[in-house]
Nucleic acid binder design. Structure first.
Lengths: 207, 207
DNA sequence: GCGTTTCTGAGGCTCAGTATCAGATTGAGT
DNA sequence: ACTCAATCTGATACTGAGCCTCAGAAACGC
């Protein structure tokens, strides 16, 4: 910290907060440790104290970073949701919403096919652990909320209108297809590419 | 069984067990009490001890009837799922799967429109309580499992085949539409009939 | 009736999650 | 450089859900 004067230029360009970086670093390490332990010993077989001890943090502080145990491996999904929503909004207006959604999901297929074995063990843990699966659906609900405004725009209906169920239905159905594809992908151990399964799943709805 | 000879008809029709009826009665009362307390004080504001005390049961015994606190108001959904699956299987083969699913859901629209205010407060509680909402999705997953065999049959594909994502996608999408309709129904306080919202939701997918 | 099985209540236990409090660290103002 | 306010941390204690064990009481089969 004594070199803060000499590196003021550096610290000014990058870090709006010096403290913030420490937080980000800790967060990242917690996710790493938690992910490893969960896969090794199972989610329920791992206690929060164990994670805290391994990271070198008190349990109380750990809960200041992550509100729940599940969030330690699920919070990253919110960023993923944002990416999907962004990719969706970037699709041309000439595409039908369903097609645009399919293309937006390529954000996921690319990521998962990039590191298949890692993605498979992660998804397997998600599907095999009831509490994680439940929270996972919660996250997908937030994905729906992120997608709906753009869907409503493309459908030409106003959002925030209770009886306009179209955007909600469309986003929910698309995510259901995504889940179906992910389930199939895990079930066949990644033998069939995720993108193909997603094509089949979403294709079933349009026939 | 000693009277099986004389009253075999009676014992076979009504009481397979005398003890069983007590269990069913207790279960029913627990559901009643839990539902009332949850709506009055909120789900998180009600403790299991409180329910146990009001029913006149120990906490341990209560957990022998219901595995979790959520199950006390969610277990009934499994029976509902069976009814939907049954109604779905009863639809003529001439109907497309999507249409047949829509008709099967009328089991729900009828039930909910029969006692709207009760259904509304129940659904509102379900949507406003994170832990209940999460478990609710779990139940819907079991609905999917119940629907998939018949969907697979109608689609002419074999179930239990990992890469056959069609049935899973179709059932998931349909249930997503059901959720969208239910959400909208609660949001507009039941102003628009549930069946209408469901028509709109599922119609969005077929265009 | 009598043995067997099942159910019950009581008590203790683990673990997730929350609240409080005192001490340490950082960042801003001067 | 010094100080003050805000934030972060660890320690501790607490609530509540869920699990397990054990001894007694009920119901079932004979």
């Amino acid at each position: 910290m004594t070199d803060s004067a000499g590196a003021s230029a550096q610290s000014a360009t990058k870090p709006p907060g010096l403290r913030e970086r420490m937080r980000a670093t800790v967060r990242k390490e917690v996710v790493e440790v938690a992910l490893r332990l969960f896969i090794e010993q199972g989610f329920d077989g791992t206690t929060v104290d164990q994670i805290a001890g391994e990271v070198g943090l008190s349990r109380a502080s750990l809960f200041r970073y992550f509100g729940t145990k599940e969030d330690m491996v699920l919070q990253g999904l919110e960023e993923t949701g944002r990416q999907i929503a962004e990719a969706f909004a970037a699709r041309p207006d000439t595409e039908r919403p369903w097609e645009a959604l399919r293309r937006a999901f390529d954000v996921l297929t690319r990521t998962n096919e990039a590191a298949p074995e890692q993605a498979l063990s992660y998804l397997r843990m998600l599907q095999e652990t009831p509490s994680l699966r439940a929270r996972h659906f919660e996250k997908q609900l937030s994905w729906q909320a992120m997608l709906e405004p753009e869907i409503a725009r493309r459908l030409g209906v106003s959002a925030d209108q209770p009886e306009e169920v179209g955007p909600n239905a469309l986003s929910g159905a698309a995510l259901a297809c995504l889940d179906a594809a992910a389930t199939g992908w895990v079930a066949c151990e990644g033998a069939v590419p995720l993108a193909v399964l997603l094509d089949r799943a979403m294709g079933t709805l349009t026939e």
